[in-house]
């Protein structure tokens, strides 16, 4: 009967003379562990606009919209923090590993509406110079060209794009919806969508 009381008394005394176990949170900010999964952020420089993150997101928190703005086609990628579950799938599956990165921010509280809890970035599209259909974001094409290296020579559109990006070819930019008259032999020296490429190869 005596022993249990002594043991608990010991613990009680220990607790009495130790600092409070709780953290003094708002005064002393909390620092999460290094690998904490927090709020994800898009990075304009790292992101190539491939939208792989939107495909793998289990909560459908990332959406992408391709829209025509004047003479440009842009892909807008948006991460909705109000439905994000911080699982880290977007970062794990990012093509460049630098496009979307989970920060250490754990505090999602805001005074705004929950719909405002989001971040968007825009990526410009390459447009088919023959039929005006958007093909792929510029950055993603550049990323593919860089990654392939010499293999770029096997794909005409990719090669043309690569030559233009290093300044070896005319820099002309097609606008969406603009349709050139005919497909002839010279069309093959343009950046084309797969459909037009096929047609151009057959007709020439």
């Amino acid at each position: 009967m005596r022993r249990p009381k002594v043991r608990e008394l010991k613990q009680a005394l220990k607790s009495l003379f130790s600092r409070p176990y709780t953290n003094n949170f708002p005064v002393k900010p909390h620092k999460p562990y290094e690998r904490f999964r927090g709020r994800p952020y898009f990075y304009q420089d790292g992101c190539v606009g491939c939208a792989a993150c939107a495909q793998v997101c289990p909560a459908n928190a990332i959406e992408f919209i391709d829209e025509i703005k004047g003479t440009l086609v842009k892909r807008r990628l948006t991460v909705h923090w109000d439905i994000c579950v911080s699982c880290g799938q977007c970062q794990a599956n990012c093509l460049t590993t630098k496009g979307i990165i989970l920060s250490q921010e754990f505090d999602y509280a805001t005074t705004e509406k929950r719909q405002e809890l989001k971040q968007s970035i825009e990526k410009e599209f390459i447009v088919c110079e023959c039929c005006g259909v958007p093909i792929i974001p510029y950055d993603q094409y550049a990323w593919v060209a860089n990654k392939l290296g010499p293999l770029t020579f096997s794909n005409a559109s990719l090669l043309l794009f690569y030559l233009r990006s290093i300044g070896l070819s005319l820099k002309e930019r097609a606008s969406p919806g603009s349709r050139s008259a005919t497909i002839n032999r010279s069309t093959r020296t343009k950046i084309l969508c797969p459909g037009c490429r096929r047609e151009a190869v057959i007709k020439s």
Binding site: P32, Y33, E34, R35, F36, R37, V85, S86, C87, G88
Partner: peptide, 11 residues
């Protein structure tokens, strides 16, 4: 939190 990145949803 240290190992998995979250206190409750370990992923």
């Amino acid at each position: 939190e240290m190992v998995t990145g979250n206190r409750n949803n370990y992923a």
